[in-house]
Write a protein that binds this DNA or RNA. Structure first.
Length: 558
RNA sequence: UGACCCAUGGUGUAAUGGUAACACUACUGAUUUUGGUUCAGUCAUUUAUGGUUCGAAUCCAUAUGGGUCAACCA
């Protein structure tokens, strides 16, 4: 126990180390973090990492986390996204202290801009975007000053006021910080602070026609909220210099930025422009398609919040580039679902099986709901002479180590009897149509006195009692590990077999009463959940993940 | 041809100058009325070269490799 505790203490990530230091040496008594999404898309598994990090930190240490929407670009942002983001965070199991918007601070930010102008640290520029790009220089060549750089404070104040008043069209002018056009860091070459956009904002409406840029909104919002640890991804490392510069010149609360490497997962994409194309260009029906790496997609797929949190925890955070194997995510969801899923029997590709010596009628057989959970109870499953089993579970000429059904071979039917295959009936094309079997009456589950030992146990359903199901089997969305790293368009690498619809499935009767949010394990097949496309006349199930399959590996070996 | 960031098994993450470890994967075996689960075990790691030091994954230098930066995006 104490050793376990010690281990836990030891494996702090680099941010926890920084925070523990800050707390220990009295820099802060408590910490404040924030999760700062831009409301222009749905949250994905990469965001989950950031959410778990930011909220997790203030769960572990004294303090709290704000949710702040970085809504400084009205052209791309929308309330639809605000709602989905809040929903996803809550579903993941986190609650924010304050819900804030960068747009809440537009007035303050405007004041900050004026302060900078008055200090001679910002100016209004009216050169074109092209000219500005040219004057900016390149990473290896210094830039050149804009002709507008030396305007008087008074002139700048006047021009900025007229920008705000809407006197100029989009793109006509910008407010720029006056730093150093020869700076080695391109972001310090007089970055744009404000631009003109005559656009309707989802929260401020038409109040503004000038909007702050990210660099003039994010750090300032952090400061206003007195965020102690502003955590972002590595691509913002060069921004930190500007972040600090602005805070210093504005003489406001000194928030600090820390960076970690974004988590990448193989066989999917999470970059915003790429992800956006999938639903908008109809490669998938929507953001919540179960193949999408979005939180809402994973949720519909049947992933649990616990499994996603566990995943984020396991993969940790660091600063180096990484591609996490999607197998880890699958491991986490199997681990959780194994504990909570109700076991049910479903035959996907039915093969008729008749018990020739069954007396007729039916009987109800008990079967445990979850062998991992003794408190989970049992249900009754109807058994009759007319059954079906998985077509895959029978082979006329089985290889070695095949434990399933074959002519003359015996298997156990899960929670029922041991049967022997006596006869194979084929149609005119030679396809196996039906199996004739005899059952061993004294081999009944729970009271087996037959003394017979069989290697294989099959799932089955009673044909007259069966319920028909539609099953959607999902596979990885892309057929290559890193689609955006391949030649050409990433969409060329979509997996054409990412969705397979099984419409022949027959389930045990109890599944007619399946409910949303319940997790099921279809024995020997995988984990499934009811999909929202379910209607009164049609039960639709999503396959969350398959069971680990030792046999297919064995079979491949020959 | 610049600056910045990064470099530990196949993958992800630890080890904070003192025996390179944990998890996933893969592979063996045991158990099993799910070829699942569980349990036991095996394989496999410090980018390179110098330096500092009694001692280096850790500190320093150089090289190499990967990533980022020239949006009125965030």
């Amino acid at each position: 126990m104490s050793e376990e505790l010690k281990k836990e203490e030891k494996s702090l990530n680099f941010l926890e180390e920084i925070i523990e230091d800050d707390l220990k040496n009295g820099k802060y008594k408590s910490i404040v973090t924030r999760f700062p999404p831009e409301p222009n898309g749905y949250l994905h598994i990469g965001h989950a990492s950031s959410i778990c990090l930011n909220f997790g930190l203030t769960r572990k240490y004294p303090g709290y986390t704000n949710l702040r929407f970085d809504d400084t670009n009205p052209v791309t942002e929308d309330t639809e996204y605000v709602d989905s983001i809040k929903d996803d965070i809550r579903w993941l199991g986190f609650e924010w202290k304050n819900e804030r918007y960068a747009s809440d601070y537009f007035d303050t930010l405007h004041g900050y801009a004026i302060k900078l102008i008055e200090k001679g640290l910002a100016y209004v520029d009216d050169i074109t975007a092209e000219e500005m790009a040219t004057l900016k220089g390149t990473p290896t060549e210094p830039g050149k000053n804009s002709p507008c750089r030396d305007r008087s404070v008074q002139e700048n104040l006047d021009l900025f006021a007229r920008m705000k008043a809407g006197e100029f069209p989009d793109g006509a002018m910008t407010l720029r910080a006056k730093i150093d056009m020869a700076h080695i860091n391109m972001l310090m070459r007089d970055p744009i602070l404000y631009r003109i956009k005559h656009a309707h904002h989802h929260r401020t409406g038409d109040k503004w026609c000038i909007y702050p840029m990210y660099d003039f909104a994010h750090g300032q919002s952090d400061s206003i909220e007195e965020i102690t640890h502003s955590i972002c991804t590595m691509e913002f490392v060069p921004h930190r210099e500007l972040y600090d510069w602005l805070i210093e010149k504005l003489e406001i609360y000194p928030s600090h930025q820390y960076e970690f490497a974004r988590r990448n997962i193989n066989f999917t994409v999470t970059s915003k422009p790429n992800l956006l194309q999938l639903p908008t260009e109809k490669f998938v029906p929507g953001w919540d398609d179960p193949r999408m790496p979005t939180i809402t997609g994973l949720r519909r797929r049947g992933y649990t919040p616990d499994s996603i949190r566990e995943f984020c925890d396991r993969i940790g955070i660091a600063k180096r580039d990484n591609i996490v194997d999607v197998g880890v995510l699958e491991f986490c969801v199997r681990e959780h679902l194994n504990k909570i899923a109700l076991r049910r029997m479903v035959v996907f590709d039915p093969l008729k099986l008749v018990i020739t010596n069954y007396p007729g009628g039916e009987e109800m057989l008990p079967s445990e709901n979850n062998p991992e959970d003794p408190a989970g109870g049992e249900r009754l499953i109807p058994f009759s002479a007319e059954l079906c089993i998985e077509r895959d579970d029978f082979m006329e000429n089985p290889p070695k180590k095949y434990f399933r059904l074959a002519p003359g071979q015996m298997v156990r039917l899960k929670s029922a009897y041991i049967i022997r295959c006596d006869e194979v009936i084929k149609d005119e094309k030679g396809e196996v149509k039906e199996l004739r079997c005899t059952y061993i009456p004294e081999s009944k589950s729970g009271s087996d006195t037959s003394g017979i030992n069989v290697k294989g146990t099959l799932h089955w359903v009673s044909f007259p009692h069966a319920v028909s199901l539609e099953i959607r089997e999902y596979d990885r969305l892309f057929k290559v590990e890193d689609p955006s790293d391949e030649e050409g368009d990433f969409k060329d690498y979509l997996n054409p077999a990412s969705l397979k619809i099984v419409s022949t499935a027959l389930a045990e009767a109890s599944l007619a009463k399946a409910v949303f949010n319940e997790r099921y394990q279809f024995i020997r097949k995988g984990y499934f959940c009811l999909d929202k496309d379910t209607s009164a006349s049609r039960l639709v199930f999503n396959r969350t993940v398959t069971l680990k399959d030792g046999w297919s590996k064995e079979a491949k070996k020959g």
